[in-house]
Design a binder for these strands. Sequence first.
DNA 1: CTCGCCCACTCGTCTAGGCACCTAAAGGAG
DNA 2: CTCCTTTAGGTGCCTAGACGAGTGGGCGAG
Lengths: 262, 262
Amino acid sequence: MPPLSSGLLGALDPTSDRAVFRQIADQLREAIDRGRFKEGEKLPSEAELVEHYGVSRMTVRNSFSILQGEGLVHAEHGKGVFVRPRPPVRRLASDRFARRHREQGKSAFIVEADAAGSHPQVDSLEVKEEKASQDVSTRLGSVRRVLARRRRYLLDGRPVEFATSYLPLDIARGTPIAEPNPGPGGIYARLEELGHHLDHFDEEIRARMPSPTEVKTLHLASGVPVIHLIRTAYDTEGRAVEVCDTVMAADAYVLSYQLPAT
Amino acid sequence: MPPLSSGLLGALDPTSDRAVFRQIADQLREAIDRGRFKEGEKLPSEAELVEHYGVSRMTVRNSFSILQGEGLVHAEHGKGVFVRPRPPVRRLASDRFARRHREQGKSAFIVEADAAGSHPQVDSLEVKEEKASQDVSTRLGSVRRVLARRRRYLLDGRPVEFATSYLPLDIARGTPIAEPNPGPGGIYARLEELGHHLDHFDEEIRARMPSPTEVKTLHLASGVPVIHLIRTAYDTEGRAVEVCDTVMAADAYVLSYQLPAT
DNA sequence: CTCGCCCACTCGTCTAGGCACCTAAAGGAG
DNA sequence: CTCCTTTAGGTGCCTAGACGAGTGGGCGAG
């Protein structure tokens, strides 16, 4: 094992109240923040740090687990611990559902990704009728059963988002909306063709840590939260015609809204 | 030590690929989700679980640390590990900066909190001139120095958000905006009085894990992300007159936006 | 009865190892 | 030269135990 060049990391302060594993985590964090370890670069191995600080391996592992929890690093089995590269973020503008965008035909996700030079994909498509959850039922105005459209979005092979749209059966059943591919402009274009002119959307945004299912579906590294967005679409008669429940990898998105100051 | 009533938790599957500490975490998580352990309730102690599963204490602690990372439980030294109660969330409506709200006089935060029956506070107020960061400078249109207004918001004693407003010096210097208390309606009211009629706001939303500083400032439990909101205010001449950088405890907020479908 | 101390229980930190498994590189077989 | 096997280095997972430190209840002294 090559000796760890000691310029990068300092020594511990034995008089400090701060736990040793926290001190080590602090030093590593600072070194990362200062760019001493760059994105994608490998941190010193556990053994090197054991040597450098004169502590036991569990203590070093503990430090790593803190940094993992903060989303700063990720461990690869058999390779090492690496500074997590910050993936390019996708900006979601608040006008992304504007009518003019629908007129182009392709879905918003595809158009936007192509424009950014990324390779977009949609998978795990599922369209079926099911019982509405309490929450969805409330939002749609006491609907018992709904059409659910589930799909997952990937960017350059990486899953970044999965979403489920819920629509009242009396609107969606037997229309192109109930088809896996609803046609150009997506379901919003179909809704308007069916006479449900869209008036506005409500979006609710939360952020939280992912459930184990979400970790799997989005291949989330530890320390990456999710953004949970619930959009309700209303037609010009004030009726809620769709609820879309979206979970996004928080490190892949910036949401952007423009608000009038009236 | 009283025996752990074994109805609550199952046994381990030694044939499973899943690591033991993950299996234990899974069982605890499921028990919590099913309401077998309720909000605020104490989980079995480490020693009880060691006994129940026949594993070492580190393994049990590892399981707990997973659940902590997910924000499901929190440990209290000397007392036990508890199911984390979900605090009431504050809804931030997208019209919260509408002019009509400013006319009431009090700041948006105070008015809203009072209405919800909570006890609001603002602290660690700091107003000073400083060099603009690269990012702020860009957003404000190549401004070198700015007036920075820092403050922290608390709800019923709990810190939930801290924010910094940056304003160009040529607008803010020598005005009530540079005072600790800018007067009724806040700085937006003052900006309008000074002839900077507000046209619209841009809001950028990110979610991520907090830095150690943010953990301290917001007293964040582990497993709670932050919502990072950057708002830029534009006047009717298209000039950016304020950038507000806000970090919120994600478990205390739901952001709500209404978008036209035009 | 009250106060203060002590002890049992709890989690927090750390040590010192062992086994399993993955990865990459070196080296041997074909 | 290519392909496979071996092996060393690395991480993941786990054990067994020690000491520290916060909490709360019980018990004895006053």
